[in-house]
Design a binder for these strands. Structure first.
Lengths: 228, 228, 228, 228
DNA sequence: CATGAATGAGACTTCATTCAT
DNA sequence: CATGAATGAAGTCTCATTCAT
């Protein structure tokens, strides 16, 4: 058997990239179920070698997801509208996010799968491995716009930018869970498109500053639903 | 060896329930990874018998999730406040939902896992098997309250009750994805409790009828984000 | 569930026959591998009931073989030629035997399977169960002819009729092992037909009385092959 | 866990042999019923590994039988008597065959089991897998002696050596079927030993050239036994 | 370092046989 | 007595991971 050896660090890096690339292709198409064997084959090396570069399948899986976030980041960058209004900008960012996920349904599922399973228990605790880092890097895109809105007095003063961002983001993912599972759904039109539009509008409206509005505390009349 | 037998249909149902109960206990505690063998053992029957009642592990897994929805339904029923205001009622229902999921984190993860993986491809297409049915049964609890709000002119007329419900529900699940993954999070207080409170308030505010508000269409200034 | 009960002995016998008949049909077609379930189904009763009539699969299998010997016996009876010469008669009987087996290849295989496996260990030791009895019943057909030959001085005097019969019979089965395995072999002509003809001739010749012939003892020059 | 590895083809062959050896030991002792698991254990490897080397149990079983033929071949080789008479040689070979089978009864049963069941349907059609090849390799031992007899004018000229060999061989196996099933039978003496001796004598006599002998055609008086 | 081989765990089946009703 | 249900044993396969070379 003849094979290449990865003597230099550079060569080593190239290999890792190749594995990741193969993994991405296959995971994004068929999900976690793809056998490691197959990924190795596509990267033109043996299973055992793959394990030299990745501690286990889960770490490779998570790395593949991380990669996906880079592409998502590009998309968000392109969606930035330096001179648009705050609302337009926010709208554009959220739509870019949703668009991207609908264009890459399996990838979205993988991100949700990551949350649903205990991947953190199964991969090295190296923070560079964790997805959180990657996700955190995307936050500013949204947070900055929101903060601009705060400065302009558009949004409620008692709403922290980070919280608003989280709420908007997770509402989007929540809806994506359904939209993405709906195989028949056309991406950019129909029921789901409208639903996303409505959801974003509601969020924006709900966060808008208003003279007459009070705090977040549970209404008085809800004693039996223990408060959080 | 001596064993029990399920002769009547009723008996058979009981047996199925028993298996399900064992499966629930184990799945809810350790997730999908539990060996079928172990589930059978806990149900005090042989693996072969278990396979008489469930076509495969996935079908059992999904059935276990379905079971969980029954418990959730009870919780929602208890949260109904016949004479509370619309907002109080909605608030109570959403909190009940979130509370339940935080009390049963693994169960929540399983529901999200179900959405993230292609379980529907792996189980019989019998609609009774599908989770969708079970979820649909919960919808009216929320929808009815929202419709009451519509009748009272509290919510925007152009917002369909079903859409509003979906948006609120999925926002909650989106946030739960994070909250549940945060092992350290205390359930009923702290950051997450506050975040849920804020999110619900925003949704309610955003859906509120207002004289000055228009449609859902994307603002004019968003041509580059292909429209939905 | 409604079913028939076998109250009378007669009814009981009918059932046993029905099972046997189903077993024969299926065993003769597909061999030992047929599931008991299927036999029961064809006999229109449940597996468990079948076990009331037969101790286990092997006993049923052996019973099915026994049945086959009855048919074989008919064939032998038809082959008897009261006024034929001894050689013609013997020839006719052996050919009838071989013909029958080639017409019922699976049945022949079953008889050989019975010998090759330790069926006697697995069935009740009731002699009525054993195949030997059944086979013994067929012996006289051949033995009588041979004895007639003895009386006529055709065959060597030092050859016991029973031994000759066994030798002739087992030579036939030995060849049948091969002929029957040769799926492509046409039954009544070609290589195998000729081979059987030759074999029978050789046997008859070899057993023929001759003035110059001595005993059965191993020749002197075979000391190293320990004698039997 | 630590284990051995078969890297080279030679090593691999050794491994396969080791499995085969374990299989032989167990099959020859307890027949087809031995669990694959147990064979693997005796070969000191895992079931999964065993399945790397053999497609399924049947292929292993057949391979074990093939192995047995090698030992038989040695025995036949040892039985060759270069300067013995034709009759002595044939006698010696046949006795060696029978002796070997009586010494290895289970092995003989396995060969007959192979013929009686449709093993060829269940194993790969690779001719190297088939037993036929192995058996064919043994033929020359007998055929050569017979041909020597032909050359010396000892045997009928119209008897092909191959046919004579088949007839003698199958007569022996036919008798072995019975002898081997007779657990109580002592190997080298008694009824069976005598029977084999007689059978061989008859065959040799029957094949002997004689001035007055005609063809193999069925006698005239056998019209009703359809001719083959 | 690269890899083929080995492995343990577990899913899923089939099936003869037995048990409880 | 008849039977549906249960079961244990075993075959087969897949796959993530590890070991020895």
């Amino acid at each position: 058997m003849t094979y290449l050896q990865a003597r230099s660090d550079e060569e080593k890096n190239r290999r890792k990239k190749a594995i990741l690339s193969a993994a991405k292709d296959l995971f994004y198409e068929r999900g976690y179920g793809v056998p490691v064997e197959e990924i190795a084959a596509r990267a033109k090396l043996s299973k055992a070698t793959l394990y030299l570069y990745f501690k286990n399948k889960d770490e490779l899986y998570v790395a593949a997801i991380r990669e996906g976030f880079l592409t998502l980041e590009e998309r968000l960058q392109n969606a930035i509208q330096p001179d648009g209004s705050v609302e337009e900008s926010l709208n554009a960012l959220l739509h870019a996010f949703v668009d991207h996920m609908l264009d890459n349904r399996k990838f979205f599922r993988m991100t949700q799968h990551y949350l649903a399973e205990d991947f953190r228990e199964r991969i090295s605790s190296d923070p560079d491995q964790l997805l959180e880092q990657e996700i955190n890097r995307l936050f500013p895109y949204v947070t900055q716009v929101i903060e601009r809105g705060m400065d302009q007095g558009i949004f409620r003063k008692d709403l922290k930018a980070g919280d608003f961002r989280t709420i908007a983001w997770r509402m989007a993912t929540g809806l994506l869970d359904l939209a993405v599972a709906d195989e028949s759904a056309s991406i950019r039109e129909g029921r789901w498109a409208e639903l996303f539009r409505k959801a974003i509008t509601i969020i924006l409206e709900g966060a808008r500053a208003r003279r007459d509005k009070g705090g977040w505390s549970p209404e008085k009349g809800r004693p039996e639903v223990a408060g959080f």
